[in-house]
């Protein structure tokens, strides 16, 4: 039972960056801009987060370590800043959104490691001393089952992800802004005729996706790593994209998809101890999210899911 609890806790921790980045993708795609740059934006966020943490940690040596929290903010801002490139290309220049996203992904690997060499003189950041620390919440952890999973040996960032899902749901479905965002992604012409500024909504959508992806990347490196390297994100941005699709472009859908994909990553670590699946190779669990997403796409293909206008530049003259 102990193993199961710690497994589920670890699954929550691994799901956190997937879920947060996936929310970012949700905002972008709901506004009508496909964002395959999530991976690269996560890398920018992770690099910025790790760098800030390394640099600020010594000044918090005595008291509470604010450094990783500041790292998250800076990581998020960095993601948002870089995503403006994608927004400008997609909205102002009507660029192919997939090409633009690919360019940013390529740029991320180059720029982060280049800057690491300039700042730290090596192809990765220095290691941070503490980063985030797992905590057990007194009182709450006494609750049977729930306490063992959610409040024992867990990072507080997990709660950030859960709260953000609820916030995203509220913003997208319960506010005027959310309605405008969704309508821009479904039918930009109709939205325009109703006085919605399509370009503005898409800018907001893309920049939010950058902020979330940057946050997700920073959380990932500060909870699952000891320093930023070019392999720190290793495809998690694409898993987030998969979670978005698997979750049918809905906040709670992507939450469960993210949890499921996080769990499948954990299974690969524990599979040796579980009799039923101990024979399966590690690679099987690694490949699972990607394969399942392709299957899900086929299953969804007969229904209209996902924003209709996603991926298409808005051309006022086109009917």
């Amino acid at each position: 039972m102990e193993t199961l609890y710690s497994m589920l806790t670890l699954a929550l921790i691994f799901s956190t960056p997937i879920i947060i980045t996936s929310i970012g993708g949700l905002f972008s795609e709901r506004s009508g801009v496909v964002n395959i740059a999530l991976e690269g934006l996560m890398m920018f966020g992770a690099f910025a987060g790790a760098t800030v943490t390394v640099m600020l940690e010594p000044s918090f040596a005595g008291g509470f370590n604010w450094a990783p929290w500041i790292g998250l903010v800076v990581g998020s801002l960095t993601g948002a800043l870089v995503s403006i490139i994608h927004a400008y290309l997609s909205v102002n220049l009507n660029a192919d959104q997939v090409i633009s996203g690919t360019g940013i992904n390529l740029l991320a690997a180059g720029v982060t490691v280049y800057l690491a060499q300039i700042i730290f003189g090596q192809q990765r950041t220095d290691t941070f001393q503490r980063g985030f620390i797992k905590s057990t919440f007194p009182g709450l952890s006494e609750i049977p089952f729930i306490g063992d999973i959610f409040f024992t040996n867990i990072y507080s960032t997990v709660f950030v992800a859960l709260i953000l899902v609820v916030v995203a749901w509220f913003v997208i479905y319960k506010t005027a802004f959310g309605l405008r965002l969704r309508s821009t992604g479904e039918n930009p012409h109709a939205s325009d005729s109703m006085g919605i500024n399509v370009a503005k909504m898409r800018y907001i959508g893309v920049i939010l996706s950058g902020a979330f992806a940057g946050l997700g990347g920073a959380i990932m490196v500060l909870t699952q790593d000891t320093q930023y390297t070019v392999g720190s994100i290793h495809g998690t941005g694409f898993i987030a994209l998969a979670a978005l699709i698997f979750g049918r472009w809905k906040p709670f859908g992507l939450l469960f998809a993210g949890l499921f994909f996080g769990f499948s990553q954990i299974l690969s670590l524990y599979s040796v101890d579980i009799p039923l699946i101990s024979g399966l190779p590690l690679e099987f669990f690694n490949a699972l999210p990607y394969v399942l997403t392709v299957v899900a796409l086929v299953l969804f293909s007969s229904q209209a899911v996902g924003p209709k206008a996603a991926g298409e530049p808005y051309d006022k003259g086109k009917r």
């Binding site: 490139i85 290309l89 102002n92 220049l93 009507n94 660029a95 192919d96 090409i99 633009s100 690919t102 360019g103 940013i104 390529l106 740029l107 690997a109 180059g110 720029v111 490691v113 280049y114 060499q117 300039i118």
Partner: peptide, 22 residues
């Protein structure tokens, strides 16, 4: 010089090609 400057150049060429309307 950091080798990654070559990757940055390649990536920015892709972005500039994407900007072809501009």
């Amino acid at each position: 010089i950091p080798r990654d400057i070559a990757d940055i150049i390649i990536a920015s060429i892709v972005l500039f090609v994407a900007m072809q309307t501009g």
